[in-house]
Nucleic acid binder design. Structure first.
Lengths: 120, 120
DNA sequence: AGCATGTGTGCGCAAGTGTTGACAGACAGA
DNA sequence: TCTGTCTGTCAACACTTGCGCACACATGCT
């Protein structure tokens, strides 16, 4: 399988739409598939559904079925595989990364990815 | 366009081969394109060259030209865009992420991604 | 200059991926 | 039970991406 966990995660994250979806879900606690689709005019429900499926398979989002609704939430696990990879590559500047994360955290800063998409 | 910085980074990271290349370079300080290509039997030099181009455009690796050689090294900047994104999504479990990073660092653990690629 | 080496690029082909439209399943309410 | 709503899945299409081959460019050696 070319689809190891980290592979799935990075593939899932490769698509801007999926990152946007992930951010969107992250902002709220839970969102139904319909609510998510509603946020993206330029995207059909099927497309959103497909993306959600990929995100779910990658373990990035969790699905809670409630009647005919499906509520999606961001998986709390901070993507171990991603951390592992970053670790292997940025061994040297690891502390730098950690502090960068903490900086961002301290700043209360939320530089959403979606903002970039508007004017690249 | 669609190629904002984080877009380029995530796209670059989406490919297992590129992650492997990045890890490989990370292990050493600098590697020439030829040395990198030599590490991947199943890959031609042109493919490696293409990957290096993408990694360079994403700002993940730096190129130092020395005569007819080109030495590649991992860009020290720990991919700000990636951190920014993770921050936006995992706001809640951010500290968790930071500690995970530090954990991995402390463990001296280097769970390379490359191991996945063999079956591909 | 001539030749060999290191490396990137353009072209064409094969493979993977996203999007859409139509269909099917599950559930709530009348 | 019947209908409408919410959602996922399947098949088909267009688009993008990765790969190898041949070629071009730059550099170093003789």
């Amino acid at each position: 399988m070319t689809t190891s966990q980290s592979d799935a995660i990075f593939s899932a994250l490769a698509d801007p739409t999926r990152r946007a979806i992930l951010s969107l879900i992250g902002e709220h606690e839970e969102l139904t598939a319909g609510e998510i689709a509603a946020h993206f005019d330029s995207l059909g429900r099927t497309a959103v559904s497909s993306h959600l499926r990929i995100l779910r398979l990658a373990g990035l989002v969790a699905e809670r079925r409630d009647g005919r609704f499906r509520h999606y939430s961001v998986t709390p696990t901070p993507a171990d595989a991603v951390v592992a990879f970053l670790t292997s590559v940025y061994q040297n500047s690891l502390e730098q990364l950690a502090s960068a994360v903490q900086d961002a955290s301290a700043a209360g800063d939320t530089p959403l990815d979606r903002t970039e998409e508007r004017s690249a």
